[in-house]
């Protein structure tokens, strides 16, 4: 890419030249962190949209009327909980079939066997409502101390928690990258301003207003962001693609990631956002610095 032509020889000073590398490096990091955030968000959504079924078991109650009363109370408690789609008692015949391999049918009567079986209740959770499953189970145990819960997808909560943490870390690191860009560009611009003090003085002598001089720094910052940012973005994409397709091949896959088209669009928006931060920061730093010089 050709060098930019400006009244101030900004590409001749180390501080300004470093701006290209700085913008490139920060774009690389910001894209990686943003990718972690965006992909984690997509993964979280997919995890939460998975059908989730929890089964509650009440110990055997011999009195059928009492069993019905307790089941009704349990259903009422569960269905009042946010995020629960529905509850459905499992038919005792079905329960009997489940327990068949465990009991000696020959030794007991059919009716007595049924009375010895636990009462099972299936709970369907609404994924979109993000139900607080641990809290629901706690409330059930409080009301029915003998009840047992069987989460059919026991690792789901762990996966969700891990993905949530990755999303939070990624988002924090992305924000920090932007802050670092803003602060770093401001410092580099101020350093350049000091280094080019004499030329700035000459431009002012020739009738240049501060906004004209500030525009020089702004244009150079835009050039640096474009040059460094495009390199940083390309490198970040290679890294992401390497991680996405290389890790499973090496048997390193943990949580499955399947980026959506929108995720790539959002990622592509990161370099322009960084470039905007670079340009605005350079302009503000130059304007403030010029006021200090005058």
């Amino acid at each position: 890419m050709a060098a930019i032509e400006l009244d101030l020889p900004l590409d001749e000073t180390p501080a300004s030249r470093f701006l290209v590398w700085f913008a490139g490096g920060l774009t690389y990091l910001a894209v990686l962190f943003a990718a972690a955030t965006i992909f984690a968000q997509g993964t979280l959504q997919r995890l939460q949209e998975r059908p989730r079924l929890v089964t509650i078991a009440l110990p055997a109650i011999e009195d059928p009327a009492e069993a019905d009363r307790q089941l009704s109370a349990l259903r009422a408690l569960i269905e009042s909980f946010p995020g629960v789609a529905w509850t459905a008692p499992v038919a005792q015949d079905e329960v009997a079939r489940l327990f068949e391999p465990l009991v000696d049918r020959a030794q007991g009567e059919e009716g007595r066997l049924k009375r010895m079986l636990p009462h099972l209740l299936d709970i369907r959770l609404l994924p979109s409502a993000e139900p607080d499953l641990p809290e629901l189970l706690r409330q059930i145990r409080l009301a029915f101390p003998n009840a047992l819960a069987d989460n059919t997808d026991p690792d789901l909560t762990t996966e969700e928690e891990l993905t949530r943490r990755i999303r939070a870390l990624g988002a924090t690191a992305t924000v920090l990258s932007f802050l670092l860009v803003i602060i770093g560009v401001a410092v580099l611009t101020r350093t350049s301003l000091d280094l080019h003090n004499e030329t700035v003085d000459l431009l002012r002598l020739l009738g240049a207003p501060d906004r004209y001089v500030a525009r020089q720094f702004e244009r150079y910052a835009a050039f640096a962001a474009l040059r460094g940012g495009s390199g940083g973005f390309a490198l970040a994409l290679l890294t992401i693609l390497g991680l996405l397709y290389g890790a499973p091949a090496l048997g390193l896959s943990g949580i499955p990631i399947a980026p959506r088209p929108l995720d790539w669009v959002l990622l592509a928006a990161v370099p322009p956002a960084i470039a905007l931060a670079v340009v605005v920061s350079a302009r503000v730093a130059a304007v403030v610095g010029l006021r200090r010089l005058s």
């Binding site: 009244d7 020889p9 431009l203 020739l206 009738g207 004209y212």
Partner: peptide, 16 residues
């Protein structure tokens, strides 16, 4: 300004 040509140096106040 040594990084600009003679033409650009002379043109500077007009451009400003």
């Amino acid at each position: 300004l040594d990084h600009l040509t003679v033409f650009d140096n002379v043109a500077l106040p007009l451009r400003i």
